[in-house]
């Protein structure tokens, strides 16, 4: 393999990887505050892209993206308030079924609103054929946008959870719900907030990736599966782990092309998911001790 080809594969891997990581972090935020996996996570990505595309004729691109993210956050909040907030100690199975139901509902609504066609935001810089050269490899400038925006979101989240009082309150709810209530934190609001946050992140990712991958009403399912694989691989609830696992899975997928036919790409990631679930269910970066204390 030439150095140029290596870099080319690497960038392809980083592009997929950062998108997977963002979806996985979305899973993690909600998992951390509620202990559930929100299988409608992929739909947030779809909604972000689709809403921004619909707003584009009315607003300039940055504003359209901003409004789309805000609207998706609102939808995230509504989902939580309508379907989840009023449940008292729901079982894990029930929550999984509810979130899968929400995901199907969102998808069906999307096909009625936007139809079955693929759509895309325009490239932020240049167009479909502009390329920049990095270490001999040629990539689209949009790749840098995807990687950059995803990176900034991860840093922002880290700061939010470590340095702000709301972030700390959310972590408190995750660590010990009863103790958090005793400290005067309303865990229900924190759960809503976690949906808002992960909806916003998903929507923003959906906007930056739209020029490369297109947006379509049913894009969420595939992303949710990949994101779930990454979340498990990195250890559920561990956002740093999710980034590392996302990049790892992206790189494995990209480099696998040079060894096995492309058609096996998805088979590889699903095989990894199964392998991890059997061998290390707490993920490669998670701790088995911590996993044992969790409900699922």
């Amino acid at each position: 393999m030439t150095a140029e080809l290596f870099v080319q594969y690497l960038f392809a891997g980083i592009t997929y990887g950062s998108i997977y990581a963002i979806v996985a972090i979305g899973f993690n935020i909600i998992y951390n505050t509620t202990g559930i996996i929100n299988f409608a996570q992929g739909e947030f990505v779809m909604l972000g892209g689709m809403i921004a595309i619909s707003l584009l004729p009315l607003l300039p691109l940055p504003l359209a993206i901003g409004v789309a993210v805000a609207v998706t956050m609102l939808i995230g909040a509504l989902m939580e308030m309508i379907f989840i907030r009023w449940l008292k100690n729901p079982s894990v199975l029930r929550m999984i079924i509810i979130t899968i139901g929400i995901s199907i509902l969102t998808r069906e609504a999307a096909i009625h609103i936007w139809g079955e066609n693929i759509r895309a935001l325009p490239y932020f810089v240049g167009n479909e054929i502009s390329t920049i050269s990095i270490l001999g490899a040629r990539i689209s400038p949009q790749v840098l946008w995807v990687v950059g925006v995803c990176g900034v979101m991860v840093v922002f989240l880290h700061l939010f959870f470590q340095a702000t009082s709301v972030g700390r309150e959310m972590r408190a709810c995750a660590a010990n719900r009863m103790a958090a209530i005793l400290c005067g934190i309303n865990p229900r609001n924190m759960v809503t907030l976690s949906f808002v946050l992960s909806a916003g992140m998903g929507a923003l990712a959906g906007c930056v990736m739209s020029p490369i991958t297109y947006s379509q009403y049913d894009m969420g399912t595939g992303l949710a599966i990949k994101g779930f694989t990454v979340a498990i691989l990195g250890g559920l609830g561990n956002s740093g782990g999710a980034v590392a696992a996302g990049l790892l899975l992206g790189a494995i997928e990209a480099f696998s092309v040079s060894v096995v036919p492309l058609a096996f790409k998805d088979a590889i990631s699903i095989a990894i998911l199964l392998l991890i679930l059997f061998v290390r269910p707490h993920g490669i970066f998670g701790s088995a001790e911590a996993a044992r204390l969790k409900t699922f």
Binding site: L5, Q8, Y9, F11, A12, G13, T15, Y16, A137, I139, M209, I212, T213, Y214, M219, G222, E253, A254, F255, V257, S258, P261, L262, A263, K265, D266
Partner: peptide, 17 residues
């Protein structure tokens, strides 16, 4: 000769190959 999935969203890697 390469085969891709209808759901693939980025095919930079096979194109590079």
């Amino acid at each position: 000769n390469e085969v891709y999935d209808t759901k693939d969203s980025d095919l930079t890697a096979p194109v590079a190959k």
